[in-house]
Design a binder for these strands. Sequence first.
DNA 1: TTTACTTTTAACAGAATTGTTAAAATACTA
DNA 2: TAGTATTTTAACAATTCTGTTAAAAGTAAA
Lengths: 213, 213
Amino acid sequence: MNTETSISTEEAILMAARKVFELKGFDGARMQEISDRARINRALLHYYFRTKEKMFERIFDEALERFMPLLSTWDQDLEECWEWKLKRFIITFITFLKTNSMLFLLREIIRKPELLASKTKKYRKGLNKFVLYFDRLKQERLIRSDVDSRYIYVIIHSLCSFPLMNGIVFSYSLRISPKEYDELMTGYPEIISDLLIQSLKYQKTEKSINENE
Amino acid sequence: MNTETSISTEEAILMAARKVFELKGFDGARMQEISDRARINRALLHYYFRTKEKMFERIFDEALERFMPLLSTWDQDLEECWEWKLKRFIITFITFLKTNSMLFLLREIIRKPELLASKTKKYRKGLNKFVLYFDRLKQERLIRSDVDSRYIYVIIHSLCSFPLMNGIVFSYSLRISPKEYDELMTGYPEIISDLLIQSLKYQKTEKSINENE
DNA sequence: TTTACTTTTAACAGAATTGTTAAAATACTA
DNA sequence: TAGTATTTTAACAATTCTGTTAAAAGTAAA
């Protein structure tokens, strides 16, 4: 009964399922593989979770439940320096993504859009907090960028998510091992924080890009 | 025999397979669904492509074959203005990604890393052209950024890929329809071109971010 | 028209997978 | 220790899916 770690059987199953679903996706996952990984009997999976579908939904919903709040952690408080807010967000987001596969969510949503659509009501309010916040920053002239806040949203999330999600391909492209890539990425949050802050701070001045020096 | 459009049966099958594999992944794809979509008989799939595995590999390899050259289109010619080069790359890359799902490649590589690993030799040379190019730009003082060229690589690719790959989730988060999201994204290449060029041009000056105004 | 190639039909074998069940074994708790 | 809950074992039903086959129908071209 997992005496050493005192992990309940249900927890052990969920951990295994999470891993297998993340790696193989719903369609590629096998109940046998999950039970093997959890070091329990396959029949026990059904004893706890009835069907594969139900087990998957539990995993998916929990992942979504952890993920969605990250999309709306932008309180409208203009007192706190936005640069710090942004930096904090980037670090939180990247830390989260290291342990929770965003690719998993995306893949399953594309397979079955209802997975997200059915949760519309639950998460919709609060979702555009980010856009509102940056709109206000611009209104109040606290940042000088004139870029549509929705682009800023897309840019920040892309910079945070993709490097982790696409690690395999990036490490291949850069011709370094996955381990080396991980090490490289420790400096990454700092880099993009600076990049974003700088480009939000200063309004684009000259549109011409003709001179090389 | 597809007289109107003069598409060969093989081509029709490949188109259908591409679509189904992109949507469902290898494990979720059904031979029946592919043949239905191609408006031919299921037995005919096997007549042309023997097995599902072989058909998939054909699709995957073709996708990779179209994709990989995009990663290494950085000739070392320093005469041409790098800003133009970068802008051209961004537009080419985004245009490509609109029709060719990068998510498809990524998902299948994670499912079965050998898919990429086995192609090592074929694509490796030329892969770090980008990094070399930006290293030279820095050496020659043509750009003033002091950021590791590998970060620049990751940043550019993330900004190009993720907004297209994650369209469903972004349109959900921004509370606009997928159609409206697509429209919004027409202005996107311009935005990130400017952002990147600006931040590469000007070296980060002040590290302090204490003042709000 | 003959010949070769393409496509459909329909049926089937084999394998893999999910989910069920019942009985036995084990562990936990009062 | 007795009783309860958990876990294993092993077998099985039902389904789904892939891949095969053989025969017939259709098409194109010589």
